[in-house]
């Protein structure tokens, strides 16, 4: 058994908090017997629980102890069940009965081990199911994001301005989705190299021949697959991205222009 995984499963906490079914309890008890590491772990958990529960301390009424003692007067501890005495081993006449008993025992043992195996299989499947559930949640989330983007891209009135790489890096590529009806624009980073830590990309709109700052942006794994909304500016002739010192510049550094695309 993988002790670490067993501890990490939280089953000892559930055991100490008495949240397990009788079958699960016996399993934990059997495991504690077998693995001393679990005993120490369980003790630590139990100390923590004792500490936690003692937060709720409350004082009994002054006469409570007397009442309690009175009520315990007539109570005696239940005797432990005496272990069943082993029946005398069967003589000749009982031979077939003994035979039957052996078969029954063998069947019981087989059922027991089979059941244990099934329990193990069940645990494995339960873990696998949980992992799949998490994967599924994640996929649903991604899917929702992608559908939203698709809707943005399909919006009527959209025009796509492709910004091609300059001589600095001809493979660089990004687009602007520009919608004069909804007055919204989005940046789609298709391929921009990750800049040095002290540098940041800055987006510009060229309006009447003058560059207008549209803000700085970072390039991460996420930004490669998501649209970012950027400020909407009217009557743009061209969009461009330059590489600027982190935080951006007031005017674009033209020799650091990475991509550019005209609206015409």
């Amino acid at each position: 058994m993988d002790i670490k995984a067993y501890i990490a499963s939280g089953i000892l906490e559930q055991y100490a908090f008495d949240l397990l079914s009788p079958t699960e309890r016996s399993e934990v008890e059997a495991n504690i017997q077998k693995h001393p590491e679990l005993v120490e772990e369980l003790r630590q958990i139990e100390y923590a629980i004792e500490k936690y529960l003692s937060l709720y301390q409350d004082t009994p009424s002054p006469d409570f102890q007397q009442r309690l003692n009175d009520s315990l007067e007539s109570v005696v501890p239940d005797p432990l069940p005496t272990p069943p005495t082993t029946p005398p081993t069967g003589g000749g006449a009982n031979g077939w009965l003994t035979g039957l008993a052996i078969i029954a025992l063998a069947a019981a043992a087989w059922l027991f081990f089979d059941n244990q195996q099934k329990d193990r299989n069940y645990q494995e499947l339960a873990t696998e199911y949980q992992n799949l559930q998490l994967d599924c949640d994640e996929t649903t989330e991604t899917n929702r994001g992608l559908l939203n983007q698709l809707q943005t891209i399909r919006q009527s009135g959209n025009s796509l301005i492709q910004m091609r790489g300059t001589d600095k890096d001809t493979t660089a590529f990004a687009s602007i989705i520009y919608n004069a009806e909804t007055k919204k624009s989005y940046l789609d980073i298709v391929n921009l190299a990750t800049p040095d830590a002290d540098k940041q990309y800055q987006l510009w709109a060229i309006v009447g021949g003058i560059p207008v700052d549209m803000g700085v942006f970072d390039v991460t794994v996420d930004t490669n697959s998501t649209l970012q909304e950027v400020p909407f500016i009217e009557n743009v002739q061209a969009f461009a991205v330059t590489l600027e010192p982190r935080g951006g510049s007031e005017v674009p550094t033209l020799e650091e222009m990475v991509v550019i695309g005209t609206t015409g």
Partner: peptide
């Protein structure tokens, strides 16, 4: 008190 004889220290702490 009724179960006084049934506590088994191997199964966990007395407080629990």
């Amino acid at each position: 008190w009724k179960n006084a004889l049934k506590y088994e220290s191997g199964k966990g702490r007395l407080f629990t």
